[in-house]
Write a protein that binds this DNA or RNA. Structure first.
Length: 481
RNA sequence: GGCGCGAUGGUCAAGCGGUUAAGACACCACCCUUUCACGGUGGUAACACGAGUUCGAGUCUCGUUCGCGUCACCA
């Protein structure tokens, strides 16, 4: 049978990296077996719904390459793919009523006040278990309430005795006492289904074979199974993915600053790198390879290798991986992506292609560029102690002498390119029986005013050009004199 | 609090009864070098605890501890 998985987000805002990973795994499970990947929008909570959130979902999925085979925008044989639209067709109510007929669900007219009275506080947490009050309403009472237009919800009727067992592909068999299963709401008083209900109905109607979702649903899965059984439907395979946490082992939140895909992109990370990193949070391939394209992940992905324990989101490793993507990236492509960042700090016309290439293997994320190239714009204030290098055996005096020697040479030399300049300065060093570094150090310092630069002295000379270089060296001579 | 799940270096993790307990990030050292990186080499660092099963346990069982999840007309 063809595998069909779905990604079913709620349009409530940003796309959390945990959600992104769930979307990825669902995609990979389907695509590894050449199956279908479906996008379904679960907008059953009108209060939490946020304008533009659906676009965020589309854009994130497109940017990361997780393209769906069926979905709201492209249709498919199992539509509509938006739950509010399905709701408007009366679909969920129809199925809920079937359950009522079977005695697996019932109308509940309890108001908020009564429900609140059922709540109790344990360890600072409010918990509530419904007491089945309305299950015992007579048929006449129910009819009367309905006729009177009294607001109602429909609840699942779960047994109080026995146990329910379900199977998860990762966690194995999990059994729960039925006394733990509360009578959850299936249809809300506004007529919309809850996630718990809509999810089961739609997964079945859409022929989903593998339900991929976060571990937080583990404890409500027995209730979903009871729903499948009540309808007489086949139960899909469950794959519950472990949580992603921050350094404090707490759920990722907005405050972590790296909770959503878009946050990460804004921080200067590449979509491919983010996806690659996230794939490895909770899953590992049989080999010890770490860098994968999405296509390679599809081939390699084996869901039985998904981990069971939560994983900490490690920015440092993401940064490393992002750097690896830069190193492997085509220089042209990198330059194109880096250009906005370069132009943000360098306002004059220089060879941006060369500068981008200087920086490509040295940065981990785009904003790192600034600190590397700011000296091209102008030489920062610096201490003349920078000219003193133990390793290069330079002093302020030796630096001054070298700069004075070299200035006329630079003014006169014909070819102002990296290679030619390097030869010129190298032979000067040899003539004076000094190491190359002894000569390069003061020049690089004079040109940049920095302890470290993304390139050597001659490369900087070339990019800066003769006029600007001469100017900077003259200034340095002045400073040292 | 009930229930469920989890537990290998600081982090991601391999391991699926017998290994000198992989690999990666981070960190440190050295090499390379026109600075810093890159690259290369090496190093520090882990099976939460206690019983049991077994000739033999990181691997299986039970308990303890810790962590997480869940107990909504949110998903």
């Amino acid at each position: 049978m063809k595998i069909r998985t779905r990604y079913a987000p709620s349009p409530t805002g940003r796309m959390h990296v945990g959600n992104l990973r769930t979307a990825l795994y669902a995609y990979l499970i389907a695509k590894h077996e050449d199956g279908d990947y479906i996008l379904r929008i679960e907008d059953t909570d009108q209060e939490r719904e946020m304008a533009g959130a659906v676009d965020i979902i589309y854009n994130t999925l497109k940017e990361t390459g997780l393209l769906w085979d069926e979905g709201p925008d492209i249709g498919g044989g199992f539509g509509p793919y938006v739950q509010s639209v399905r709701q408007a067709q009366g679909l969920y109510m129809e199925y809920a009523k079937k359950l009522i007929e079977k005695g697996e669900a019932y109308y509940c007219f309890c108001d908020e006040e009564r429900l609140n009275s059922l709540k109790k506080t344990v360890n600072g947490e409010e918990i509530m278990v419904y007491d089945k009050h309305c299950l015992y309403l007579s048929k006449e009472e129910v009819e009367a309430n309905l006729a009177a237009g009294k607001p109602f919800v429909i609840r699942q009727n779960n047994p109080k005795e026995g146990t329910t067992t379900f199977h998860d592909e990762l966690y194995g068999d999990i059994s729960v006492d039925n006394s733990e299963l509360d009578d959850m709401v299936l249809i809300k008083s506004d007529g919309f289904p809850t996630y718990n209900f809509a999810n089961v109905v739609d997964d079945h109607l859409m022929g989903i074979t593998h339900v991929v979702r976060g571990c937080e649903y583990l404890s409500s899965t027995p209730k979903y199974n009871r729903l499948y059984e009540a309808f007489g439907w086949d139960i899909p395979k469950y794959i519950h993915c472990p949580t992603i946490t921050n350094e404090e082992h707490k759920k990722l939140s907005k405050r972590s600053g790296h909770s959503s895909f878009q946050d990460l992109v804004d921080l200067g990370y590449l979509p491919e790198a983010i996806l690659n990193y996230v794939a490895l949070l909770g899953w590992s391939p049989a080999s010890d390879r770490e860098i994968f394209t999405l296509k390679e992940l599809c081939e390699e992905f084996d869901y039985s290798r998904i981990a069971k324990s939560p994983a900490v989101f490690d920015m440092a490793k993401l940064a490393w991986m992002n750097g690896e993507y830069f190193k492997a990236m085509d220089p042209e492509k990198f330059c194109e992506l880096a250009l906005p960042y370069l132009k943000e700090t360098i306002h004059k016309e220089l060879d941006f292609k060369k500068i981008a290439e200087m920086v490509r293997t040295r940065i981990e994320k785009f904003p790192d560029i600034k600190d590397h190239v700011d000296f091209f714009e102008c030489v920062p204030e610096y201490d003349s102690d920078l000219y003193v290098s133990k390793k290069q055996k330079t002093t302020k005096e030796s630096s001054l002498a070298v700069l004075k020697d070299v200035l006329p040479m630079l003014k006169e030399t014909e070819c102002f390119t990296n290679d030619a300049l390097f030869e010129l300065l190298k032979s000067y060093a040899e003539k004076n029986e000094k190491k190359v570094g002894f000569v390069m150090w003061p020049i690089r310092t004079a040109l940049s005013g920095k302890l470290m630069t993304p390139a050597g002295a001659t490369e900087i000379l070339e990019v800066l050009g003769r006029d600007e270089s001469v100017l900077r060296i003259e200034k340095a001579i002045e400073k040292l004199s």
